[in-house]
């Protein structure tokens, strides 16, 4: 899977399932949690999605607002461990 596919899959999941606003034009550098579009509780859901979709396990201590606030950060974290 290349980065572009991963990015679009994540963008679609976040806007549709976490933000519940599928039409929202989410930017790559936009603060998703700090911008008030989703709360930090949803990070666990995101992690489980990443596990199922890309087979990448993100340890709990990495599920923080500081590390997972923008699409770029999330994509980079997934790309780091993808096989």
């Amino acid at each position: 899977m290349d980065e572009k596919t991963i990015r679009e899959k994540l963008r679609a999941y976040i806007t549709a399932d976490l933000m519940r606003d599928p039409d929202y034009p989410l930017g790559d550098e936009e603060g998703i949690i700090t911008g008030g579009m989703m709360d930090s509780f949803a990070l666990a859901e995101l992690a489980v999605f990443v596990e199922n979709a890309f087979n990448v396990y993100i340890p709990d201590p990495d599920l923080t607002v500081a590390k997972m606030d923008t699409l770029n950060q999330i994509v980079a974290r997934v790309m780091r461990d993808i096989k």
């Binding site: 666990a44 992690a47 596990e51 709990d60």
Partner: peptide
């Protein structure tokens, strides 16, 4: 943060992995 990392996240992730999972 500690309880988020070692209680909240693992617990919710476990529940999210269940086949018949409750609503989020």
């Amino acid at each position: 943060n500690w309880v988020r990392f070692y209680i909240f996240s693992p617990l919710t992730r476990t529940m999210l992995r269940w086949k018949r999972k409750p609503s989020s």
